[in-house]
Design a protein around this nucleic acid. Structure first.
Lengths: 188, 188, 188, 188
DNA sequence: CATGAATGAGTTTTCATTCAT
DNA sequence: AATGAATGAAAACTCATTCAT
């Protein structure tokens, strides 16, 4: 499945980081999971933080790609926003590890340096669509950055409620209603 | 400030947990912060997780109290919801440590056991108001649990964007617009 | 049951020392077992070793008393030796804690100082009978100290074999045969 | 002397365990004695109990080998039993650490699990010779397991008396008389 | 007399990282 | 390139002992 040792290491590390947390994951357990030797990890990554950072960049890239794909198939801004919100849910379900990981590391400044955040981020796709929709008069005028932050927060937290059994709704109901709420926020 | 050693320990631990994360905070550093001996922490708490759990319960209790106070002064459901959303922001600003801490521990199952979640939670206050507003016809009919999850997610993530400099808006602007968006979601 | 706190402490300590070992028994657990406070133990004993030493002296005194009682009822040296060997078994069964404890501490020089061994010891009773039996011509001439050491060793180890299920014999069979063997060793 | 680090650890640990007891021996002191780092001990052994267990197995293997060698050179059962009892003394003198250690750990169930005792034990050699001697009519009929337990107990305790200065006999006298007594127990 | 909070040195164990092979 | 033994600092936690109340 993993063509190279490096990929095997990245994959094993992501698994363990999400399952047990970054601090509770030892280099030795990553090496075991990747079926390689401990010392070998240091051939591919400077240290544990460097490894964690590279995983973060992979995850955000995939998140961004998911957004780009979601938008491509749709025409109207409203449909595009629907598709985008839906794609956050899709990502959080199908790429559970990657979605969880992004929020696990996001506030760890030893790992996510300012420089890391200077690369293209997932939210940029969202912001572009919102801007177009506002210009076209489909959406009311709001700062698009804050809208994206609302959307991500809504999905993330409603998903947590779902997982923790804190809401009686089904997964599909949560998705439908969140998409609906997202549009209510910005429609004229 | 801290009348008892136990309070000093709780206070120092909260400081460090929020600043450096729970795993990266050693018992020794907590002892140092509380100006007590390491061993003494174990007289008051079974172990590190037990300490973390007690802090969580303190924080959620305070969060809930903040909600209850916010609601008291207002009459109409709409004003009450505005006040509640605003009080999340207030709490996230004035009780920064407590607010941050709640989300830091929330998904750590070694600390937040099912039993921990069986106690009265902050969101219950919110849910009550939403139900009343729906009955009174002020709000459209949506599952109140999911609405609360949206609100908390919106505030939490927009606050993170604010802190990380990812939005050009001022703090007050973020608050006003988030309160506005919150009402748009549920109004008829 | 324990008329004084001191007795309660001695009793709780003996229990725990035999069950878990001396090192693995904390002052706190003794205090808990004796339903008193930790600090209170230091009112009655200088330190943990002092407590362990006093228990040892109690146990050996009781062991010695058991020997004295066993001898009293018998007349001939042979019957007396039989009764004594039997009484080691009796003691090892009825005063299991005390018997086990004696051998647990015996080689711990921090606890059993040379001075401790200068007091009247259980084996002295044995030695007296053996000497009398030799003088009377009932027993062959052997150093009585070494004979006692054999007897104690035989009982102790055969009892261990019994407890560990390493012999198919019943408890009574082991006792009878050991008494028989003890006599064979010294008879003319 | 120790070709590998692992052997150095085993050797240093045995020294300290016998000298100070297992509980009173810290991993740090073992590491120091073996001239290695503390952490390295955990590469070779799971934990302290695991280390103690491996030492026990080494010791009993050597004890058994000593028995096997002792028997080889002799023909008649009586000579063989004499040689065996003598070899317990030899072992207790020349392999003082190993002999002492066996009895130190024997009753610690965290270390000597039932599984540990399922391996070939020293006493088996003894039992075989006794059985042969009984069949040949040289010895009276007694359960051989209990006889071995007597022998081991006699040697062990008479040796303790010797070391503690509790008998006026010399080492050689103790040995001769114990061998003599051992035969008296089983001869017809 | 009794209590139990406080101390701080000590214990076992883990782990990121290095390096000889 | 790959391995995994070795290192030693640091972690969580324990405990005998003291002492203010």
């Amino acid at each position: 499945m993993n063509s190279t040792k490096k990929e095997a290491i990245l994959d094993a590390a992501l698994n363990l980081f999400v399952k047990n947390g970054i601090d509770a994951t030892s280099i030795r357990s990553i090496a075991k999971g990747a079926k390689t030797a401990e010392g070998n990890i240091y051939r591919h990554f400077e240290n544990k933080n460097d490894l964690a950072r590279e995983i973060f960049l992979n995850c955000t890239m995939q998140f961004r790609s998911a957004f780009e794909e979601a938008v491509e198939k749709k025409d109207s801004p409203e449909e595009q926003i629907s598709a985008l919100v839906r794609s956050i849910f899709d990502f959080s379900i199908n790429m559970k590890r990657e979605f969880a990981y992004i929020f696990i590391v996001f506030h760890r400044e030893e790992i996510i340096t300012k420089e890391t955040l200077s690369k293209p981020l997932p939210k940029d796709v969202f912001v572009d669509i919102l801007k177009k929709g506002m210009e076209a008069g489909d959406f009311r005028s709001v700062n698009p950055d804050i809208v994206v932050s609302w959307y991500v927060g809504m999905v993330q937290r409603s998903f947590t409620f779902l997982e923790r059994g804190m809401t009686p709704l089904s997964q599909d109901e949560v998705i439908e209603q969140t998409v609906d709420a997202a549009l209510r926020i910005i429609k004229n």
